[in-house]
Design a protein around this nucleic acid. Structure first.
Lengths: 223, 223
DNA sequence: AAATTGTATTTTGTATACAAGCATTTTACC
DNA sequence: GGTAAAATGCTTGTATACAAAATACAATTT
């Protein structure tokens, strides 16, 4: 860990601000897997007392981003390759569910939004700004989640995405992945337009399997 | 709420004991949906200070069993029929995933355990003890989760089960459901034995749809 | 040298104090 | 009597104090 800074907001309780701050730090890798989350240290670094830190840690823990051992303290959750595989499988199942539900409910406007997002993606990759590229990809899927009309599913998928964020960033750093990704997104849009549920499910599955393979390669390469 | 009591354990931090106590109370309906979770009140009722109560509430909140409004406090999460539908759909997708994974990995011993559980279920329904009946059903599915070998999937399914616990109890109070339930369990075992992935998936889907329908009926009847 | 005990230090666990916000009632004024 | 403002009480938010456990490390023993 290096430089944490609080983005204070008069009306949000500090625990929520701390929670978001720590979550961001974990996702962006400023807080590394296995790194201890010491209350006093974090408190002084963020300029608050231990109380909001502790509550934020309890939230992170329930979210799976931190692991706590009683009377020992918390640390940033480590992710083994197996953990990653487990998450990817669950994500695949739920993304397929989401796109199937979306297929039933999606509006013409939402389909337009999806098409716009693909164009936007095409533009954004030229900038080379990975965070922006990642966000555009996230937006695409978020439109589908919204169309699915199942808020709990949406929040679970967001949580799963969080868990593999670091690896997805690596995946998006590799330009050779962009054409496939865009092609798959276009296939999904096509299926949604024609309301072919089995087809979109197949295309989403394909999309997920390809990403999972890339994530696997990245993990292998790192170790 | 009426009588909460703490099941103290020397080594578990109080926050965890409080968390489990409150969770149980919510699931069993002692704490009703919409009921406020006031820190001081709970603290004095459980004989602890506000600190562990607050941390437990943060955990319940992240788990979806409580909802908190800043500077207003927490209350037991309300579940609309729509929420329930949302959860049931997710559960269906993940139970199917679990049983498919189990199909790949299940051992002979685990299949034996499943068969024993069905027999046990047959015995237990004679007692009429709903909590025991529910536990036997839970055990059956837990064996499958274990065979699936995906701990994260297991914990997500456990969490989803939690959310619909109250309605599942109602479902299990109705004796006419037992024969179907047992038949479906036997079909799932058969599929796992023969390692027919598509078949187990189909049977599990069927199992889930039937339960979902019953839960729907119960909700309708209640309102 | 290895193991063990003892002690100081660090860190978490829990209780409590105090501040601030929100809601409701009371009071003052028209 | 009705409305606005003030006051009161209850609740959450945050900081801090103290206790208990874990850890690190030195001293002692084997």
């Amino acid at each position: 860990m290096e430089n944490l800074e609080l983005n204070a907001n008069a009306y949000l309780p500090l625990r929520d601000v701390v929670f978001h701050t720590l979550r961001e730090a974990i996702l962006r890798g400023d807080l590394k897997p296995g790194e201890r989350l010491m209350e006093l240290q974090l408190a002084s670094k963020l300029g608050v007392s231990r109380t909001p830190i502790r509550e934020a840690i309890r939230m992170l823990q329930q979210e799976g981003l931190a692991v706590t051992v009683p009377r020992k303290g918390a640390e940033v959750a480590k992710m083994t390759e197996k953990d990653m595989e487990d998450v990817l499988l669950i994500r695949e199942a739920l993304e397929i569910l989401a796109v199937q539900l979306a297929c039933d409910n999606i509006t013409k406007e939402q389909i337009l939004l999806l098409e716009e997002k693909v164009s936007e993606f095409e533009q954004v990759i030229k900038t080379g700004d990975i965070k922006l590229i990642a966000q555009t990809d996230i937006d695409f899927h978020d439109i589908i989640y919204n169309a699915a009309g199942n808020p709990r599913l949406m929040s679970m998928l967001n949580n799963l995405r969080e868990q593999i964020y670091r690896y997805r960033i690596e995946y998006l750093k590799d330009e050779k992945n962009y054409p496939h990704l865009m092609k798959e997104h276009r296939q999904i849009i096509e299926g949604l337009k024609q309301k072919k549920k089995d087809y979109v499910a197949e295309m989403m599955k394909n999309h997920m399997i390809n990403q999972a393979n890339e994530v696997r390669n990245i993990i292998r390469r790192q170790e």
